[in-house]
Design a protein around this nucleic acid. Structure first.
Lengths: 342, 342
DNA sequence: CTGTTAGCGCCTTCAT
DNA sequence: ATGAAGGCGCTAACAG
């Protein structure tokens, strides 16, 4: 049980088994036929020596790393765990390791983060906000297989992208407010700047209003940034400025938390005085009181699809250019529809 | 901008700069003095060729990977993102990559997960529930530097451990229920089996009762598993069996969500009829209505300390055997203390 | 300060 | 089916 100072190599195994290292390599990789007798001898030697192949040597020899890289903006929020869970499960299933790195609070980067070299992974999963367009271009020009998440490919390139349906779902939930609950002055909280999800949600909002001949009031569009505090501040300000509104599309569920807080502080009842709806449905929505009407996003599935897409790209050289995952309206109580809470 | 078929190696750079590969290696690593003139020539060549050293070759030559491995049980819950955020930031800061793997729903493993070989990382961060004691022993016996998180070292080994203070905090919050709110029949929801956090919380609960001469009633101890549905079921059953209780220690905040749901369904008021308290304080506690009195756990800090500990272990061969991070009582409304909500 | 050389551990033709 | 040998790209003595 005393830690060995130096771990055994393929040569040790070969010697122990009385065969050549190529034979050991063959039983390790199961690529080429090996006689059963020899194979079991080798396997015994491997077990006896507790041998594990060294990844670095293998990588060098094959120029593959069996590793996927995941680039994230920041590790925060309900969004992140399911996404990673999806990616990790697929990676493991296909024999890939998973390397993670974030842009952190420095914002999107123009280059791959330091330790995360171009040769550490066979391919990259790039989440929105981790790399600038320039960074994507640069990385792509090295020939690194990559898949974009919640971010579309730069114009002239064709980098596969996996994302979710934002516009139609937002239009649907806003139309629900209009048609079922007769709301007319719907406050829209935006996403983070440059965030494509937020952009399409705003398009959906605009379409919904247009369909019902409602005007787009600039004063009804305020920053939400998918952040509860920013959302809260925006609602407080709208209240202070006596802007009239009878409903709020919060941008996402996290922002809805701030909306709830601001409305409650102003003694406004949800949904009687103001309807509130969100986007994401990752557990928070069910906890809020009243339960939040929102749009369900299959985030784990995004991770799964993205990982599959990348692996296919690595292995075959091509992949589906665009995977758009469906989102679904989840009616609870905060819009005004009744439902037993939680 | 057309992806190069084969990326440049150190030899290409050497040729381009008109020096030997060792010189290139030297300016790459900045270990050994190099004349400024030569250095800038080399740097120019590196830029011209857009050269990036291949990690695998480096790893093989140095027998180091500059990579930290993180082993998790499952990627779920509020716990996970802050932990990873802490680990990732420290790793990046010190020039380490981060490799992630989970035991998944198969439960704790007896060996390191497949793709995640013993030589892929310079050291391992092992979170409770990812590896059995046997697995820890086995991995340790290979001489892999490792740090345990929320899990203590096997008896005879001395593997550094980073965890949080559970017992005193639980005792404090339970005593708060007893002394400030005059609660006498406090239902305790356990953690997951074999989870040490849960074990120590139960010890704290028992100590608190003992200090106030309250009996330990077996019927007041029920499964919570840090899971909202299991917790909800336990409360519903207690209610059905007409077990008397005037307070609930939920085990953690996630379980408290289930407790709220069950009590609300039974038309019981929190905190008037029943006080509820949790553990974790990762955002959920503030969202619940009434706001949850709980214990704040510095999870990101756990990640930070653990990563630091592992890096020190890797670089110096020794590290603090035990890091116990303090937790703090956070009084909100669900115990009965008044506070403006959210 | 710089060049030469010998591995690091494994895979992979090429023979046999 | 198996063995021999070259090479993957880089670092680290060792000379000079």
């Amino acid at each position: 049980m005393i830690p060995k100072s130096t771990s055994p190599t393929i040569d040790d195994v070969a010697r122990e088994a009385g065969v050549s290292i190529s034979t050991v390599s063959r039983v390790l990789n199961r690529n080429v036929p090996v006689s059963d007798k020899v194979a079991s001898k080798v396997e015994a030697a491997i077990r006896a020596l507790r041998y594990t192949p060294r990844a670095a040597a293998r990588n060098l020899a094959t120029s593959r790393t069996s590793t996927l890289g995941l680039l994230l903006a920041e590790i925060v929020g309900d969004f992140f765990s399911p996404l990673l869970r999806g990616v990790e499960s697929v990676a493991r299933e296909h024999g890939y390791d998973l390397l993670i790195s974030t842009a952190g609070r420095r914002g999107p980067q123009k280059e791959l983060p330091g330790p995360f070299g171009k040769h550490n992974a066979d391919g990259l999963l790039v989440f929105a906000g981790s790399l600038t367009d320039e960074g994507v271009r640069d990385t792509y020009s090295f020939g690194v297989p990559m898949v974009l998440l919640h971010q579309s490919s730069p114009q002239d390139l064709t980098i596969p992208c996996v994302t979710i349906e934002n516009k139609a779902a937002t239009r649907a939930i806003v139309e629900h407010l209009i048609t079922k609950h007769n709301r007319r002055k719907i406050l829209f909280l935006t996403g983070e700047p440059y965030n494509e999800d937020g952009y399409w949600r705003e398009m959906g909002y605009r379409e919904a209003l247009a369909r019902h001949d409602l005007p787009i009031e600039p004063e009804l569009i305020a920053p939400g940034h998918f952040d509860r505090h920013i959302a809260q501040a925006s609602i407080e300000q709208a209240l202070r400025e006596k802007i009239q509104f009878d409903a709020v599309f919060a941008g996402d569920d996290e922002a809805a938390v701030g909306v709830y807080a601001a409305l409650r502080a102003a003694n406004l009842n949800i949904p009687r005085d103001v309807s509130v709806v969100g986007f994401d449905d990752q557990g928070l929505a069910q906890v809020l009181q009243p339960a939040l009407t929102t749009v369900h996003v299959p985030i784990e599935q995004v991770g799964i699809e993205a990982a599959r897409c990348l692996i296919q790209l690595i292995q075959t050289g091509t992949a589906e250019p665009l995977t758009l995952l469906p989102t679904t309206l989840v009616i609870r109580s905060s819009c005004g529809c009744l439902e037993p809470s939680l």
